[in-house]
Write a protein that binds this DNA or RNA. Structure first.
Lengths: 181, 181
DNA sequence: GAAAATAAGTCAATATGGCTGACGTAAACG
DNA sequence: CGTTTACGTCAGCCATATTGACTTATTTTC
């Protein structure tokens, strides 16, 4: 990273702050959290990026395979709603995944206009590998942070989501867990 | 988000898991955390995206203004190292920011090949506004999570960063804090 | 002092992943 | 039968990233 003048390497929360509220140093400036989240997310998606690159896929493919794997039989419209992208953007990515045998589409039973989405075994395996990579990162992190951190992180992450979409996301996760048992 | 068949809306950590370790439900599957991080980050950057859009800027501009504001006088090479992008990618973005009076460049004192980067008052104000937006999101989150969460989140986020880059990032943050005092 | 290395900028071509608008087709709804 | 819905697709645009090659200015090295 080059050395932009190395000094003040005191890693602990904050050195010369006027924050001295008895128990815990809660005076961590938000700008630190902003930067840490930026770098953490970059490395987090980096795990998958490497793997995907070898297959000629990108992040867009990742998201599709992931959510289709978690919600087998979901409709194209549902996927669009989750990803919040346009039909046209999804189109190319979905076509590539179908062409390469990672995803398949079947007309809906009750409504044959619907193209229900499923991952093939190949797609399921890809999704599994990608989850495994990122799971490893979480495992390492919680291993360092000690017990309780996992639950705390879950609460924290959920709280960072827009309050308007939080319930939708929690519902989505709950339904996926229910399906896959 | 459409209704992909609403059922099993049990939001609590995990319903039918075999995880019954006395005290805490630490059995939160990593896939939940993966998805929560995805949605949390999307909303997190969304805050800034809206604001930037009105100025005709994108995320790339955000990152540049942010880091230059935090590290006044940093060299172009340093910025490239932090952002891990190429000189060519940075080029356009930097030019636009300079042309619009958000960033200025000055030749280095000791080495006049260097173009040291500084934000103008206008750039500083933009950086401040963007930090304020994201700070608000963190504040809301910790308000919900209760005391201690801030410190926990800081540890968690730092632990999510690649171990090889963690020290660099911590050093970067420490140096920025030291500078701005 | 000449040669080499370094910091930065730039040109050109390319890829990815978004976007809008317009239009088509099949199926369901009423 | 006409309208709406679900999906797909064509065409074009934009932002952000990439690689490779080259220039300029300056510092360092021999």
């Amino acid at each position: 990273m080059a050395d932009v003048n190395v000094s003040a390497l005191s890693v602990s929360p904050k050195a010369g702050a006027k924050n001295d509220d008895s128990q815990g140093d809660e005076g961590i400036p938000a700008v630190e959290l902003i930067e840490l989240l930026f770098f953490a997310y970059r490395d987090f998606v980096g795990d998958a990026d490497e793997h995907l690159e070898r297959l000629g896929f990108g992040r867009a493919h990742h998201r599709v395979v992931h959510f289709v794997s978690r919600h087998p039989g979901m409709r194209v419209a549902d996927l669009l709603a989750v990803l919040k992208i346009t039909k046209q953007s999804l189109g190319r990515v979905l076509r590539e995944l179908v062409d390469n045998g990672y995803v398949l589409q079947r007309a809906g039973d009750s409504d044959r206009r619907e193209r229900l989405l499923y991952v093939t075994p190949k797609g399921e395996e890809l999704a599994r590998q990608l989850v495994a990579l990122q799971t490893r990162r979480f495992a390492r992190a919680f291993n360092e942070c000690g017990p309780g951190a996992r639950l705390e992180a879950r609460k924290f992450l959920a709280s960072m989501i827009d309050s308007e979409s939080r319930e939708e996301v929690e519902g989505l996760i709950a339904r996926a867990n229910a399906k896959k048992k």
